[in-house]
Design a protein around this nucleic acid. Structure first.
Lengths: 160, 160
DNA sequence: AAAAAATGTATAAGTGCTTATATAATTTCA
DNA sequence: TGAAATTATATAAGCACTTATACATTTTTT
């Protein structure tokens, strides 16, 4: 008996979480195998800095939809590792201007091809069986349906 | 710009995690609204005990696919709350026999209809748009494809 | 029957997020 | 212009996991 497969939608959340953790650990294994000192959790900040010369902590938290605290902690940790540097903005001292260090920039360039390969591998994975081809669309639809009408709301209408 | 929707498969893992957290918090909101002192994280143990008179910690960890430590901590926490009790097995002193207390049993009966409603609401949610109808099947397919050939393996074949 | 291996459990330390709280800088507006 | 509100940040404490370690009990092996 497989607890998660048998219980269907009752454990949908847990199942998503488990799958996400599997992906995360696989991605980390890839970095390790290629001797790249990089962690999957650094991706969002690295990606943002690869597309924007400089970012603020607030910008990070807004873009990623995480708390300011989480963004702050990400930056602290990446700074300790020497990948990024941050200085107080000259025009607004509340802001911190976060940029890559030389080390961070180099690491980013080293990682870019892995991202490309990862993208391809994911596409291959999804296209491998007809049921999974539309997985991204299915997820988006779930997200949107949920945004339109929360689970809480739906249950309220069903429950006596 | 939506970081997660735009980046597609590159942030698939994070997206799954976020969705799972959304479900979890919605489910907890439901319990709260109905004044039921229950937390979504208790579900697995409660479910197992609703279908089995008694369980061991090892059984829990096996069924749920979590570490023994996690199962042990779940039991400790539920025991502190007075929902379950555990005694050392008479036939094998290594085992702990975990059962509902009267309080736990009562709580379980109170929750059962919420589970049914939740199941219905999820079905409704999934059936609301054609893209999400097969979301469970898509997820299962992803899980299986991944089990057959890990992401690590796939990336290795792509990367130079 | 004793030694070695396997099994079941508890707990400490670590991770990465959260919320709550505190502090500093800026903007608004009476 | 000065007080109040807003914005940006840092940090403490909490949560639910994980891995690593330790210990007790049972089973297997010789």
């Amino acid at each position: 008996m497989n607890f998660y497969q048998d219980l269907g939608f009752l454990v949908f959340g847990s199942r998503l979480k488990r799958l996400s953790e599997l992906f995360l650990s696989d991605v980390n294994a890839i970095y390790k195998k290629h001797n790249i000192a990089f962690d999957a959790s650094w991706f969002p900040v690295f990606y943002l800095l690869s597309r924007n010369e400089q970012v603020s902590i607030r910008f990070i938290s807004n873009q990623l939809g995480v708390s300011h605290s989480a963004a702050s902690q990400m930056v602290s940790s990446l700074q300790e590792k020497g990948c990024i540097k941050s200085v107080v903005s000259k025009t607004d001292a509340r802001h911190k201007v976060v940029t890559f260090t030389a080390k961070g920039n180099k690491l980013q360039q080293k990682i870019e091809p892995v991202w490309t390969a990862l993208q391809q591998a994911m596409l291959q994975l999804a296209n491998e069986s007809p049921q999974s081809k539309q997985v991204l669309e299915a997820l988006t639809a779930m997200e949107n349906n949920l945004a339109n009408n929360s689970l809480l709301n739906r249950v309220e209408k069903i429950l006596p």
